[in-house]
Amino acid sequence: MFQTTKGDRLATAQQPNQTSDTRPFAFELRELSKVYDWGKGTPVRAVEDLSLSVPSGQVVGLLGPNGAGKTTTIKMMCGLVAPTSGRAHLNGYDVARERPMAVRQVGAVLEGARNVYWSLSAWQNLLYFGRLKGLPRKLIAPRAESLLRSLDLWERRHQAVGGFSRGMQQKVAIAAALIADPPILLLDEPTLGLDVQTARTVKHWIAQLAHEQGKTIVLTTHQLALAQELCDRIAIIHQGHLLTDLPVRALLDRFRRDLYEIRLGGPLAPSAAPWLDGFSVTQEDGESLIRGPIPDQARLYDLLDQVRALDLPLVSVERVEPSLEDVFFQLLGEV
């Protein structure tokens, strides 16, 4: 009846605060690899030797370009894709060997999917997904009510989700992922396709879940500003490899010294300055803004000499705080 039952401790579900002494990591990935072999063409190495451990209560941003292996990593974490090698643990439960307990630790909203039944109402979806996790109705109903009220969906709880706006559907999907109150939440592109206001609502909600309820949240997104704002920690994946895994502050500090902005009092066409390779050039109110990494003073003076030759007035030279986007592109550029 239950899936892989070795070591199954279904009847003794432990609370996260009890487990924190003996199970320090919310999740732990050990040398996870995934090779997709569909029997046609070359096997695809989606993830290679990826190890990542995150303590409870943190928001982790899993970033990377398309095809980097983010979604495969998330799916291996919750047991939706079997790894070719390596192990994943959720709150100490081995996803492969203790699956029934491991999946109880996690709720997931997956990218590009509805995640809930559009032909059912929001209320029916929450009842269904609660029972799917093994909870009885008397525990699900108050929690479903609480979730729906907090998402401003209570008045429309009996309407089919298919008739909702994209933002409301996403809220129902997140509520369904939270119905069993899992300590770990996996959100794959949670704000994709949402309007600005709904994206902001979802963002605030994620922050509340992490900082007020102590949930561990793994977030993948291409919106780097969102990741910078929400995440305590950033892991960047590229071609299946983990490039970096650092707290956001430490990651930004690592690149702090390198980034400069040079403002010129006139228009500058990048084609007229081929020596600006690797810099971004934007025009603002008749001024040009050159932005990019300058590793040392010599390179800075060298660059200013080139600028002087253009005969454009120099307005300012500033060392700037790098954004996560700057770090992201610099790291990928190094690869």
Binding site: M1, F2, Q3, L10, K75, C78, G79, L80, R99, P100, M101, V103, R104, V106, G107, A108, L110, G112, A113, R114, N115, V116, Y117, W118, F129, L132, K133, G134, A176
Partner: peptide, 13 residues
């Protein structure tokens, strides 16, 4: 639609 994957996040076979 992704609900089949959600079904696999259940402890039941």
């Amino acid at each position: 639609s992704g609900t089949f994957e959600q079904m696999h996040l259940s402890p039941f076979s």
